[in-house]
C-alpha cells in the first residue's frame, strides 16, 4: 500500500516552509467507512498529510541523511470537514530546529480557507542511534517520498527554464 497522503508539493523553501496539496476523492477507500453516508476525510489522515509535508521539509534541511520521526503532535484542531471534491492544502513552516529535533507549525486549508492547525515535533535519528533496533538504512525517506520531492524540483526547474 502506498502510505502517501499528499499529492504534490506546490511550494518548497529549504529550511523555511512548504505547501502540499491533497485532493479528496470518493474513490479513496477510507471514505467508504468514514462515515457511511457522510464521507469526510479523517482528521488523523490530515495530521499524517501535514506530517509528510513538514517531515520532508525537515529532512531536506539535512539532505535526507537522517531519519525524521514524528515524535509529538503539539497541537491538532479542526473546525470543518473535508468532503469529496475538496482540495486540502498543508502549509508547514519550521519553527525550531537543531541536531536533535525540529518543531513545525502548520495550517490546513480546504479550497483556500483555513480549517485547522497541526503543530508537530520530529526527532532526528541518525545512523549512530540506529543500534536501538532500528534499521541502518533510511526507512523514512523511501523512494516514494523522494519521488514527490523530486517531481516538485523537476517542475520548478522546467518552469524556470521556460520563463
Amino acid at each position: 500500500m502506498r502510505w502517501i497522503w499528499i499529492d504534490r508539493f506546490t511550494e518548497f523553501v529549504r529550511g523555511s516552509h512548504s505547501v502540499a496539496v491533497k485532493n479528496v476523492t470518493l474513490a479513496e477507500e477510507q471514505l467508504c467507512d468514514h462515515f457511511p453516508g457522510y464521507p469526510v476525510m479523517p482528521p488523523s489522515l490530515m495530521i499524517e498529510g501535514m506530517a509528510q509535508t513538514a517531515g520532508i521539509l525537515v529532512g531536506e534541511t539535512r539532505n535526507f541523511q537522517e531519519n525524521v520521526i514524528l515524535a509529538k503532535i503539539r497541537l491538532a484542531e479542526f473546525t470543518d470537514y473535508a468532503r469529496p471534491g475538496g482540495q486540502l492544502e498543508y502549509h508547514a513552516k519550521i519553527e525550531s530546529i537543531d541536531d536533535r529535533a525540529a518543531a513545525t507549525a502548520g495550517e490546513v486549508r480546504l479550497n483556500g480557507q483555513p480549517i485547522g492547525r497541526v503543530d508537530l515535533m520530529f526527532s532526528h535519528v541518525n545512523k549512530s542511534q540506529s543500534t536501538a533496533g532500528l534499521p541502518e538504512h533510511n526507512f523514512v525517506f523511501t523512494d516514494q517520498f523522494m519521488q514527490l520531492f523530486e517531481t516538485f524540483q523537476r517542475g520548478t526547474l522546467e518552469g524556470a527554464a521556460e520563463s
Partner: peptide
C-alpha cells in the same frame, strides 16, 4: 523525553533566547 525538547523550543520562542544543548 520529547517534551523536554518541546519545552526548550517553546522557551526559546517565548523569551527570545537561545538555549544550548
Amino acid at each position: 523525553s520529547i517534551d523536554f525538547l518541546d519545552i526548550v523550543f517553546r522557551l526559546e520562542k517565548t523569551f527570545d533566547i537561545k538555549i544550548s544543548k
